Simulated scan of single mutants.
Amino acid sequence: MLPAQARLRRRPEFTAVVRSGRRAGRPTMVLHYLPERPAPAAGGPASSQAPPTGPRAGFVVGKAVGNSVVRHRVTRQLRAAVRAELHRFPPTADLVVRARPEAAAAGSAVLRRDLSAGMSRLLGDGSRSS
């Protein structure tokens, strides 16, 4: 499980990343990346909270991927893969991972490979850290 401060939760957060961010498509997923998250609107419910620190991630696994059991399995696999790679992003970054229907038949190793390749493409080749 990702810690609460590392998750995108609200629809406007997802929308901002998908509309304004960079995109990298892979066979099993599409990654949407926004290096600088927008400031929360003044007076909104989020303005009373401290701004999140550290990179955040959100997941979109629609019905095209499969039934509820399949969607939850894919979400768990993606969450584990992102948790291992989230350190590669700057602290102000947001990431949305949208699973494609092909993710249902892919194993964890394939999802991790596609995630890593997509992140390398979004961040540039020299961003790999050990």
Rank of each mutant, 00 (worst) to 15 (best):
A50F: 00
P55Q: 06
G44R: 06
R88C: 08
A104P: 00
P91R: 13
H87T: 12
G43L: 10
R56P: 00
A84G: 07
P52S: 09
A103H: 11
A64L: 09
A109H: 11
G62I: 06
A117N: 03
R100H: 13
P101H: 10
R56Q: 04
A106V: 05
R88W: 14
H87Y: 13
R56W: 00
S130D: 13
S120K: 15
R11H: 07
P90S: 09
G54H: 05
G62E: 08
A105L: 14
H72S: 13
D94W: 12
S48H: 12
E13D: 06
R56S: 01
T53P: 01
S120R: 14
V97N: 02
V65M: 03
A50G: 06
V65L: 03
E85F: 11
G62K: 09
E13C: 02
E102W: 10
L123K: 12
V17K: 00
P90Y: 04
F59C: 06
A4H: 13
P45R: 15
P27M: 07
L122S: 09
L123C: 12
R73K: 13
R112A: 12
A24M: 04
M119T: 04
V65S: 05
R121W: 12
E102M: 11
V69S: 11
V30T: 13
P38R: 10
T92F: 06
A80W: 10
F89P: 00
R88D: 05
P38N: 03
R128H: 14
S127F: 13
V65H: 02
A105P: 04
V60N: 01
R19C: 08
A16D: 10
T75D: 11
G118Y: 00
V70F: 08
P52W: 03
A80Y: 10
M1C: 08
E13N: 01
S120F: 03
V70H: 11
R73F: 05
S68L: 05
A46M: 07
A6I: 04
P3K: 13
H32M: 01
S116T: 15
N67W: 08
A46H: 08
P38I: 02
R88V: 10
V65E: 03
S47K: 07
P12T: 04
E13G: 03
P101M: 11
P38F: 01
A93V: 05
Q49W: 04
A81S: 14
R113C: 07
A4Y: 10
M29P: 00
V17H: 04
V69A: 15
V74Q: 06
R7N: 08
A99C: 10
Q5T: 15
P35L: 00
E102K: 12
V110G: 00
S68T: 14
L122K: 12
G62D: 07
Q5Y: 11
A46F: 02
R26N: 00
T92L: 11
P55V: 01
L111C: 10
V65P: 05
V74K: 09
V96E: 00
M1A: 12
L31D: 01
V65W: 06
A105E: 13
P90W: 05
V61R: 02
